[in-house]
């Protein structure tokens, strides 16, 4: 489903958010610390901070709809992955290094555009909940006239 280029982009330390909605169609969302794409490129695992994720996890359990926005801060290159929820589990100690490395990459990008790393030091990056999502659609989301085009 995801092309190799897109999969590389998603795991490249971008700024990521997960959007969900309630049964009454109230949307909400949470920061995603890191993402890991499965080798089949049809599934991905989003690592959400355990603190602050209860509402989106409840939404995912209830209706399974997920939207992940990935943006590269240095040039605003962005894409959106739509998917359906598969499962959630506590992230393992083994995954922690990968998660923290990606988070560090995103902070470096933010530093590059003038946002000091200390600004994010209050973020509850760990422990994480690993949320597995089946990818159903991918869209280009770079701002401008081409935004919204499907990325096959």
């Amino acid at each position: 489903m995801l092309t190799s280029d897109v999969a590389t982009f998603l795991q490249g330390g971008q700024c990521i958010h997960l959007g969900t909605r309630s049964e009454t169609l109230e949307p909400t969302g949470v920061v995603v610390v890191a993402v890991s794409v499965d080798s089949d490129r049809s599934h991905l695992t989003a690592f959400l901070p355990k603190v602050g994720s209860s509402e989106v996890l409840a939404n995912l359990e209830a209706n399974g709809r997920a939207a992940l926005c990935f943006a590269r801060p240095v040039d605003d290159h962005a894409c959106q992955v739509k998917g359906t929820y598969v499962e959630a589990r506590p992230a393992t100690k083994k995954e922690r290094a990968v998660v923290e490395a990606q988070w560090d990459q995103s902070l470096r990008q933010l530093e590059h555009i003038g946002m000091p790393r200390q600004l994010w030091s209050g973020y509850a990056v760990w422990p994480c909940v690993a949320v597995r999502v089946r990818v159903t659609e991918v869209f280009d989301q770079t701002p401008g006239p081409g935004a919204g085009a499907p990325l096959a």
Binding site: H17, G19, T20, R21, L25, G29, C69, Q80
Partner: peptide, 21 residues
């Protein structure tokens, strides 16, 4: 200074997340 993130949802219940100027 820091971009905002907008979460919306279609009538069919598909959520959307997008940065906002």
């Amino acid at each position: 200074l820091i971009p905002a993130m907008l979460f919306t949802c279609s009538a069919e219940g598909v959520p959307n997340a997008a940065y906002l100027s």
